[in-house]
Simulated assay, not measured.
Amino acid sequence: MELTLAQWGQVLTLSMIAVALGMDAFSLGIGLGMRRLSVRQMAWLSLSVGIFHILMPLVGMGLGRLLGSVIKEIAVTFGGGMLCFQGLNMLYQVLRGDKAEKIEIQSVTETLLLSLSVSMDSLSAGLSLGLFDTDVILTILLFGIAGLMMAGTGLLLGRFVGGWIGRYGEILGGFILLFLGGKFLF
């Protein structure tokens, strides 16, 4: 089966959003990776982030579809505005300071709560994408894979590189969301 140009555009756009949202997990992973977590802790945290990067946009897309049926005329503008807001929020979080220094992951509950907090961005992005009638399966697979891989990569890089690269990754993610949201607004 060959993809049309519009389908390739959707795959590319969703991939960019998935990577942008995964930057949060990436930068957090770098901060936590500097603590020399065990391989088991890194695998569990990466898997947990990946699962929440599937669940949160799925819930958001369901809400977005419901909301889209109510506000049909302004759904695209609202969705673009949400993506811009998410990008600005990511940039603000970078300016506010490093959040990885205070985080502990000694228990399953702490790991799940951390994964949930890192995946909250995916909920609002899912809400926006639900307004656009986006392919649900493709979206959650791309978001889940990106979340898992970026968290794992961040954890591994954190062991060797240090914290400076995480801030730049999050800045890049914020600008990607701003760019894509702006395309829907203008």
Rank of each mutant, 00 (worst) to 15 (best):
V19G: 05
A20S: 15
A20M: 12
G22P: 05
G22I: 05
M23E: 00
M23H: 01
M23A: 04
M23G: 00
D24E: 10
D24C: 01
D24T: 02
A25L: 04
S27M: 07
S27A: 15
L28V: 13
L28Q: 05
I30N: 02
I30F: 09
I30V: 15
G31D: 05
G31I: 07
G33L: 04
R35F: 04
R35T: 10
R36K: 15
L37R: 05
S38C: 14
S38G: 15
V39E: 09
R40G: 10
A43G: 08
S46I: 06
S46T: 10
S48V: 07
G50N: 12
G50H: 08
G50M: 09
G50E: 08
F52D: 01
F52T: 02
H53R: 10
H53C: 09
I54M: 11
I54C: 07
M56F: 10
M56G: 02
M56E: 03
L58F: 14
L58S: 03
G60D: 07
G62H: 09
L63D: 04
L63H: 05
L63G: 05
G64H: 01
R65H: 12
L66N: 11
L67I: 14
G68V: 02
S69T: 11
I71F: 15
K72M: 14
K72S: 14
E73D: 15
I74E: 13
I74M: 13
V76M: 11
V76G: 02
T77N: 10
F78E: 06
G80Q: 07
G80N: 10
M82S: 08
L83A: 04
L83P: 06
L83N: 02
L83Q: 04
L83D: 02
F85A: 11
F85L: 15
Q86C: 06
Q86R: 01
Q86A: 07
G87K: 00
G87C: 06
L88D: 00
N89Y: 13
M90C: 08
L91H: 01
L91D: 02
Y92A: 14
Y92R: 14
Q93A: 11
Q93R: 13
R96D: 14
G97N: 09
D98I: 04
K99Q: 13
K99G: 14
K99T: 12
A100F: 07
E101V: 09
K102Q: 11
K102M: 09
E104L: 15
I105M: 15
I105C: 14
Q106C: 12
Q106S: 15
S107G: 14
S107A: 14
S107F: 12
V108G: 07
T109N: 09
E110A: 15
T111W: 01
L113N: 05
L113F: 08
L113A: 09
L114T: 04
S115A: 14
L116E: 11
S117A: 15
S117T: 11
V118K: 00
V118R: 00
S119M: 08
M120Y: 06
M120V: 08
M120E: 03
D121C: 06
D121T: 03
D121R: 01
D121E: 12
L123A: 04
S124N: 12
S124H: 08
A125E: 02
A125M: 12
G126F: 03
L127F: 01
L127M: 13
S128K: 04
S128G: 13
S128Q: 07
S128E: 08
L129Q: 02
G130F: 00
G130R: 00
L131Y: 11
F132H: 10
T134R: 03
T134D: 11
T134W: 03
